[in-house]
Amino acid sequence: MSGGTTGPARLEAAELGVHFGDRPALEGVSLALHAGETVSLVGPNGAGKSTLLRALAGMLPPSHGEVRFEGRPVRRPNPCVVYVPQRSGVDWSFPVDVLGVVLMGQAHRRTRLLPFLAGDRAAARAALARVKMDRFAGVQIGQLSGGQQQRVFLARALVQGGEVYLLDEPFAGVDVPTQELLIDLFDGLRREGKTIVYATHDLGQAARASDRVVLVNRRLVAAGPPERVMTATNLRETFGGQVVVVGPSGGPVAGAAADDVPTAGVAG
């Protein structure tokens, strides 16, 4: 259950700080991510979850500290670290179909200006099949539901084929079947030895679908297995009193077994 949290870190943040102008978005975050584990980043809106993911992906220069991938400092995006952005950042009315979006994941492999080959298309279709979207290949993306759009993003990430997957709010606004599919997919990737890190503000989802939970609010509040980390004290510290904890005895949210996990939500 605890995944491979031993051994050398695959991707790590060391005393990482990111400032936007004078405003600190993250301060002093140290975090080691290993092969074969699923880690959720949990915190309120504006806590710096997206910032942390982008810094880990090499998209934001750290103001302090550094990010290391397999021991080497990360200064720019690395093909082995796949970043899956939030759905809300995309123009969904764009005239591109599902297969076209997934093929974008191929583009970093060879010379970017050459045409796609049959093998690229086959790989894209296989990725679509893995997220059960193969029948939608020719559909314009704006016609998909939120969950289906998220699956297309996942297929694109699968085509990129990295070692670490960083996902920003993959569970936000998606339907129940897609949530189940995401959890299965994370499981499959984890068994292949990949590292999965995703941001969420849904505590129940985090407890259920990750080996380790990292509570973030500008800084790292706590990190560890869900049942150890998600205590009332830690949650209050992370969410500043806005958290509604619904457990069997009103206590901390505990346990990561799929069915009997109490749900907790964040008010507001």
Binding site: Y83, F94, M104, R112
Partner: peptide
Amino acid sequence: RRELTMAAFDRVFAQASG
């Protein structure tokens, strides 16, 4: 064309893929 399309459609992704 593909690069310009990507930079128009999903800027964050384009940046994330280097």
